[in-house]
């Protein structure tokens, strides 16, 4: 089974010209520029059978420029292999294409990533807060969000006596 999956991953590497792409924890890691992501994922889905959208999230590197990595995971249910797609975006313009046209399940996960990291997904028409609430300022999983900062909806009662 492992050789079968490895064969698929070798063809994926060849297709995208990333022969040096590492395989970490049996996940093939591909890196693209933000503009290439949509086309690459479409190819992964249509040519290699990566039909399951597992997750999209981001990684904040506070001292790096570009600051954010946006990370997608896909799974090929017939070949039982996984691929990770990464791209880097800068704080000034954290925009990546939405994959809602390819995977319907991307919509909610992109909303969560927008909540937590402020990554905007171009093409996702509904980026309202999903885990956070209307009126929340900032993005709590960014490293520069103050750890103890609270944004209560209900005004607090007077400070409880210790």
């Amino acid at each position: 089974m492992a050789s079968y999956g490895a064969d698929i991953l070798d063809r994926v590497k060849e297709r995208f010209g990333q022969a040096e792409a590492p395989i970490q924890h049996s996940i093939l890691v591909l890196a693209f520029a933000p503009g290439e992501v949509a086309g690459a994922v479409k190819a992964l889905r249509d040519e290699f059978g990566f039909d399951l959208f597992l997750d999209v999230t981001a990684v904040d590197w506070p001292d790096r420029d570009p600051r954010f990595d946006v990370v997608w995971h896909f799974y090929a249910t017939r070949n039982r292999v996984r691929v990770r797609v990464k791209t880097a975006v800068a704080l000034a313009d954290p925009v990546v294409p939405s994959l809602t046209g390819l995977y319907g399940s991307a919509a909610f996960m992109e909303r969560e990533c927008h909540d937590m990291y402020g990554i905007r997904f171009d093409g996702n028409a509904d980026l309202r807060p999903i885990l956070l609430y209307e009126g929340f300022v900032g993005h709590p999983l960014r490293k520069d969000y103050p750890k103890r900062k609270e944004q209560p909806i209900v005004p607090y009662r007077e400070e409880p006596k210790p």
Binding site: R148, Q151, P160
Partner: peptide, 15 residues
């Protein structure tokens, strides 16, 4: 849960 999400004690909301 001393973070952005959790109320630090419900006595901030109700007695």
């Amino acid at each position: 849960y001393q973070n952005y999400a959790a109320v630090p004690g419900i006595d901030r909301i109700v007695p």
